[in-house]
C-alpha cells in the first residue's frame, strides 16, 4: 500500500512539474489579459500579446512557457497522519530527475564550488523543500515553484532600524523595482515580507508569492498596503519588458511576522510574468487532486 502510494506521489509530482512549467496559472493569465486590455502604449500591448501568444503555444504544444524552467522549489504541507513522511524528500528528488528528462526541463542546478551543472536539476539541498507539518491532517499538499533566475537577481532583504520603519520599507520596495527595470521580465509579481529576522522576512515574502494574483491579504492593513504599493510601482512607468506603460507589476502581496524590538527586517521578492506555481493534494487512499491546474486532473485519470 505505502509503496503504491509512494509511486503515486512520484508520478503526480512529475505531472505537477509539467503543469507548473508548461501552463501559466489561470489567475496569472487572467491578470495578463486584463493588463493588455488596459494598456494604451502600443509597445506594451505588443509585449503582452507576445507573452499571451507564447503561453497559448506552450500549453498547446506542452512545452515550457519559458526556457528558464527554474531552480526547483517545493512547498510541502505534510499532514501529521499522512502515511508517507521520511521518504518524501527522496520521492520529490526522483520526480525532479524524471521530470527533467521527460518534459524536458533545462538542467539548472550548478555546483557552487565546482562550477559544474549536475544535469538533472538536483544537487546539494536542491530541489529545496520548504516543510510545514499540519497537525491533525492526513493529507499531503505539494506546491511546485520552479524559480527563474532573471527575477531572482533583484530580490533583496535588509534590516532597517525601527525608527525608519514602514516609510523606509516602502522606499526599499519602490527603489528595488525601479533599479530592477526590465531585468526581471515585467509585469512582475512582488512579495514583500516585513519583520522577523532577515531570513524570516524573505521566507514570508517568497511565500506571499504563492497567493493567487487578485487575492488580497485577509488582514485589512496589509490589503491596503498592497494596493498602495501596487499603485506606486505601477506609476514608475517601466511597463512590460521595460517598454513603458501602466503594468510594471500584476500584484504586490505583503505578509509580516512579529519583529525584534531593535530591528525592522524587510524583504522584497520577485516573480516574473511567467509566475509558475502549481499545487496538488494527495490523500491517504492515493487519490490526487490538482488544485491550481484543473486540467491536470483529466490527464491524471
Amino acid at each position: 500500500m505505502s509503496e503504491n502510494l509512494e509511486s503515486v506521489i512520484e508520478k503526480a509530482s512529475i505531472l505537477l512539474l509539467k503543469g507548473a512549467t508548461t501552463i501559466i496559472p489561470p489567475d496569472v493569465k487572467e491578470a495578463l489579459i486584463k493588463a493588455r486590455d488596459g494598456e494604451t502604449n502600443p509597445l506594451a500591448i505588443a509585449q503582452l500579446n507576445a507573452i499571451l501568444e507564447n503561453c497559448k503555444l506552450a500549453e498547446r504544444e506542452s512545452k515550457p512557457i519559458c526556457q528558464d524552467t527554474g531552480l526547483i522549489i517545493f512547498y510541502v504541507s505534510l499532514g501529521e497522519n499522512f502515511p508517507v513522511k521520511g521518504r518524501l524528500k527522496d520521492i520529490l528528488r526522483r520526480a525532479t530527475v524524471k521530470a527533467t528528462s521527460e518534459i524536458p526541463l533545462r538542467p539548472n542546478a550548478v555546483d557552487v564550488m565546482m562550477h559544474k551543472n549536475s544535469g538533472d536539476n538536483t544537487g546539494r539541498y536542491i530541489p529545496w523543500i520548504e516543510w510545514e507539518l499540519v497537525p491533525g491532517s492526513d493529507e499531503l499538499t505539494v506546491t511546485a515553484f520552479p524559480k527563474g533566475g532573471g527575477s531572482e537577481a533583484p530580490c533583496i532583504a535588509k534590516v532597517l532600524s525601527p525608527s525608519q520603519g514602514l516609510k523606509y520599507a516602502k522606499k526599499l520596495v519602490v527603489d528595488t523595482v525601479a533599479e530592477a527595470g526590465a531585468k526581471p521580465c515585467p509585469p512582475v509579481s512582488i512579495g514583500v515580507g516585513l519583520g522577523g529576522t532577515i531570513d524570516v522576512a524573505m521566507k514570508i515574502a517568497k511565500k506571499a508569492l504563492l497567493r493567487p494574483v487578485g487575492v488580497r491579504s485577509n488582514i485589512e492593513v496589509l490589503a491596503n498596503l498592497e494596493l498602495e504599493l501596487l499603485d506606486l510601482v505601477n506609476s514608475l512607468g517601466i511597463g512590460p519588458h521595460g517598454v513603458g506603460g501602466k503594468t510594471t507589476a500584476l500584484t504586490v502581496n505583503v505578509d509580516y511576522a512579529h519583529r525584534h524590538p531593535a530591528s525592522y527586517a524587510v524583504a522584497v521578492a520577485f516573480n516574473c510574468w511567467a509566475a509558475r506555481r502549481s499545487k496538488m493534494k494527495i490523500y491517504p487512499d492515493g487519490s490526487v487532486e490538482f488544485v491550481t491546474h484543473k486540467i491536470l486532473n483529466e490527464w491524471w485519470r
Binding site: N54, A58, I65, V110, N117, H241, A274
Partner: peptide
C-alpha cells in the same frame, strides 16, 4: 535588439534548425 523575455516557445518557432553545438562541457544552457 530585444526579444520578449521568457517567450520561449514563440522564440523556438523562429529557430529552424540546430546546425551544430560546441562546448557542451559548459552545460546545455551555457
Amino acid at each position: 535588439t530585444i526579444f520578449t523575455g521568457g517567450a520561449a516557445v514563440l522564440a523556438a518557432r523562429g529557430m529552424k534548425r540546430v546546425v551544430d553545438v560546441k562546448w557542451l562541457d559548459l552545460g546545455v544552457p551555457e
